[in-house]
Measured scan of single mutants.
Amino acid sequence: EDYYQILGVPRNASQKEIKKAYYQLAKKYHPDTNKDDPKAKEKFSQLAEAYEVLSDEVKRKQYDA
């Protein structure tokens, strides 16, 4: 799945936009606030993985290549 789609940001998003999108979605899908939703944990880990790659310039360049 596309990391940009997961975070809901365009491919040319700035680091600030990526961070903002991640924090909004992380708050929304955090397992502690969605105890009754088994998919929230999965969504949250996808968000974390996408953010880890896109927030790191080197990893992001490799991902975009």
Rank of each mutant, 00 (worst) to 15 (best):
Y3D: 00
Q5P: 01
L25K: 07
K20T: 13
P10Y: 07
Q5W: 13
K39W: 14
D37Y: 03
L54G: 00
A65I: 15
K28S: 08
E52H: 07
K35F: 09
Q62C: 09
S14L: 13
A48E: 09
E49A: 14
V9Y: 00
D56Y: 02
L25D: 02
S45I: 15
N12K: 11
Y4L: 01
P31Q: 10
A26W: 13
N34G: 07
A65Y: 06
P31A: 11
K16R: 12
N12S: 11
D37W: 03
A65R: 05
K35W: 10
Y51D: 01
D32T: 10
S55R: 08
Q62I: 12
A65G: 09
Y29F: 12
P31T: 10
Q62L: 14
Y3W: 05
Y22D: 00
L47G: 03
L47A: 07
K43G: 04
P31W: 07
E49D: 11
S14D: 09
E42R: 05
S55C: 06
A40V: 14
E1D: 13
Q46E: 08
L7I: 07
V53R: 02
L25C: 05
K19P: 01
K16D: 10
F44K: 03
D36W: 11
Y51H: 04
Y4I: 00
K41N: 13
E52S: 15
P10L: 11
Y3I: 03
Y63H: 03
Y29N: 05
D56Q: 02
P10F: 06
T33M: 14
T33G: 09
H30C: 07
F44Q: 04
I18M: 03
Q15N: 15
D64K: 01
A21K: 06
K19T: 14
K41L: 13
R11C: 06
K20G: 07
Y29S: 04
R11K: 08
Q62R: 06
K27V: 12
F44L: 07
A21C: 05
K20S: 15
K61Y: 08
Y23K: 14
F44I: 05
I18Q: 00
E52I: 07
G8M: 08
E49V: 13
V9K: 01
V9Q: 02
Q24N: 10
Q62T: 08
A48V: 14
Q24V: 09
K19C: 09
I18H: 00
K16F: 12
Y22F: 12
D32L: 12
E42V: 08
R60A: 01
F44M: 11
R11P: 05
